[in-house]
Computed example of a mutant assay.
Amino acid sequence: MTLTATETVTPAKQAGPGRRPARTRALIPYGYLSPTLLLIVVLMVIPIVMVIGYSFRDNVIVQENSVFAGITNYTKVLTDPDFLAALKNTGVFISVSTVAHLLLGLAFAMMLNTQLLSGVTKAVFRIVYILPWLFTIAVIAVIWRLLLDPSGVVNYVLHTLGVVQEGVNWLGDPGTALWAVTFVNIWSGYPFFMISLLAGLQGIPHDLYEAAAVDGANPVQRFLNVTLPQLRPVIISMAVLDLIWTSQQFALIWMTTGGGPLNSTEMLSTYTYKRAFSEYEFATASAAAVIVLLLTMVLAFFYVRQQRER
């Protein structure tokens, strides 16, 4: 008996009516992203490119034919005493605000996370502490302008306590205006840090504290060796973000002091705004905006790097 071997031929797999070519499937995610990418290009990339182009030209916008000016606008900005004063004020404003935000946020977060307070007390404190975060910048500016007025509540309380003899114009005195707006910014921004750090505290395993207590660590040592190391990623992220946000603060300064008096509260944001829309020097304002962009990109670089390391 002879066996005849037969070869089984497998037909080539053909794409069904519902299947798409691999190249088409690879382009589908970009199709979903295209509306967002288009908005980013139109609302962010193109304006940034235009501002960079304006910074190298003179008489832009106000005249039809502008001329190439090279780095003249940058030299003018970097040697302007008002810009240097704004840079100094911005440095003081963001550094003091960031440190105070972290300290107050951590203190209130630990208060709300402690076991010494009841649940009802914690709930009441959370409502009270979160109130500054609920107000808009416009409302905050109006409220504090009234409170810090020479005839306002703050001066009345200080005068009653014997701290001051007469009403102090906190926002109108060059010696106190910068510290006054910094205080207002601290008051309005610390709740965000409090909530973020509270979430970080609640994520720390309780076993770490129990192990530290068994080893004989006191509350201060547990805070330094357990709490702070566990909160380090959150603290670094929040600090870098606050530096970026505070450096771009405009509405609060503009609605309280307008950069005055005598440029004592002039910030990089208000300096750029005045150059563009008060003095109509759009080329100089563009150069100042590019400088601010570069400074912000440095902070953003460290933030992204820290997030990638996490």
Rank of each mutant, 00 (worst) to 15 (best):
L106I: 04
A107I: 11
F108A: 06
A109D: 05
A109G: 10
M111Y: 00
L112H: 01
Q115K: 15
L116E: 11
L117Y: 07
V120Y: 13
V120W: 14
T121F: 10
K122W: 03
A123I: 02
A123P: 05
V124H: 09
R126V: 00
V128S: 04
V128P: 01
Y129C: 04
P132G: 04
F135W: 08
A138M: 12
A138D: 10
V139T: 09
V139C: 01
I143W: 11
L146Y: 15
L147V: 14
L148P: 08
P150Y: 02
G152Y: 09
V153G: 10
V154R: 06
V154P: 05
Y156W: 15
H159C: 12
T160G: 15
L161F: 14
V163C: 06
V163M: 06
V164K: 07
E166N: 13
G167S: 04
P174K: 12
A177L: 09
T182N: 07
F183L: 08
F183Y: 05
V184E: 00
N185H: 04
G189L: 05
P191H: 00
P191W: 00
F193M: 10
F193W: 10
I195F: 04
I195K: 01
L197G: 08
L197V: 11
L198F: 02
L198A: 03
A199V: 04
G200W: 00
G200N: 01
L201Q: 02
Q202C: 09
P205N: 10
P205W: 09
H206N: 15
D207R: 11
Y209L: 06
E210G: 05
E210I: 02
A213K: 13
A213R: 13
A217N: 06
P219K: 05
